[in-house]
Simulated scan of single mutants.
Amino acid sequence: MDPSKEKKQILIVNPGQFGYQSGYFYYCKYLKEEYHITFICYDQGFPKVELEGVEIHYLPIIQGKWKRFMSWRREILKLWQTGKYEKVFMVYFKLCFLLGLSIKKGSKILDIRSGSLKKSPVANFLQNQQILFESFFFDRITILSEKLREKIGFRKEKCNLLPLGADIIPSNGNDFSTLKLLYVGTLNKRNIHETIEGFAKFYHEFHSKVKVTYDIFGYGSSEDEKCVIETIEKNQLQNIVCFHGRVNHDQLKPYFKKCNVGVSYVPLEKYYDYQPPTKTFEYVLSGMICIATSTYENRRLINSKNGFLCEDNSTSFYDALKMAYHSKHSFDTEEIVKSLESYEWSNIVKSNLKPVLELS
């Protein structure tokens, strides 16, 4: 008998296109030897990422929110009703409870990647209550952090911790003689222009003493992207700071190898406090010094072995960059990686995700 026939079958449901949310890519990467995985997502028009051993179903994004959702629901249920899947692992999206209603008890796991990020306290509370309500229609919940579980109000006995992580990307060793900054992530409401302002101040003061560069990958609203570009131009940094736009995760590897200072920058707002930034893990596990804003979760992760914390303004970012410069020779790539090595994706899948999938 073909050994693949004996694998348990799992249906992973995520509206985000495969390969553009690193967590799900690595879940598949480290589960596929033991499970047959079907991944269903929208085709958002990005270049398609393939992973041998994973069957990917792409759905077109059709006009009309309700019509789109009903088509989405119909295609998911069509797959489920083949009867071959033992588990459905579904990232939270609005109205996902309507799928939870249609899938048999004991088979459905809801993955919570985020709480509400609304600025309004009332809107924030209401959205978190909606997430809580929709979770009632699933058997198990996986969630990024214990504090996020408490904030939304999930029962502890129904939840399993599934933290974010990263793969270890081999770096170029302990070469911190130049400072090569890297930011990867969304630009929406992140105020990345503040890091450029702080970088500009550092560059104009120290460029005669140390070579510095800054690569920025991501996308956002036209307003946010324009702000990044205009800040680069205003500070005359076109040859020093490069805004690349959006690329898939695999295309970033050369930059994770080349760069040695990672920027994990989110505003210091309560709704970000318990959201562990993926990039904090990715920078540190690539052996980079990490400059991170002082959220609750970043304070748990960043220490004297792997980086510096800053406030969410250009002056504080400049100060952190200056500290990185003055102490750059005290950092060791291997020690940086060791500081968070328990968060390597293979460890998280083995220790956190597989036990949930094996629950009856």
Rank of each mutant, 00 (worst) to 15 (best):
D319W: 01
I229D: 11
G245F: 00
E297N: 09
P254F: 00
P267A: 05
K258E: 13
I291M: 03
Y219I: 11
K270V: 11
V261H: 04
I302S: 11
S222L: 14
G262D: 06
S304N: 13
K258S: 13
H207Q: 12
G245T: 01
V284A: 12
D312V: 03
S316K: 07
K253W: 04
Q275K: 06
N239Q: 13
S264F: 05
Y296I: 14
I229K: 15
S314N: 06
K209E: 11
C290W: 00
K226S: 14
F308L: 10
E230N: 13
M323D: 15
S264C: 09
V263F: 01
R300M: 12
L237I: 06
I291N: 01
S304W: 03
P267N: 10
D215G: 05
N248K: 10
Y325Q: 04
G287K: 06
T280D: 10
Y318H: 13
T293A: 02
C310V: 07
I216S: 00
I232F: 05
R246W: 02
K211S: 14
T295W: 06
A324E: 02
N248F: 05
V284R: 09
I216V: 11
C227E: 15
A324V: 06
Y272I: 05
K253N: 12
K305W: 00
K257E: 13
S264A: 15
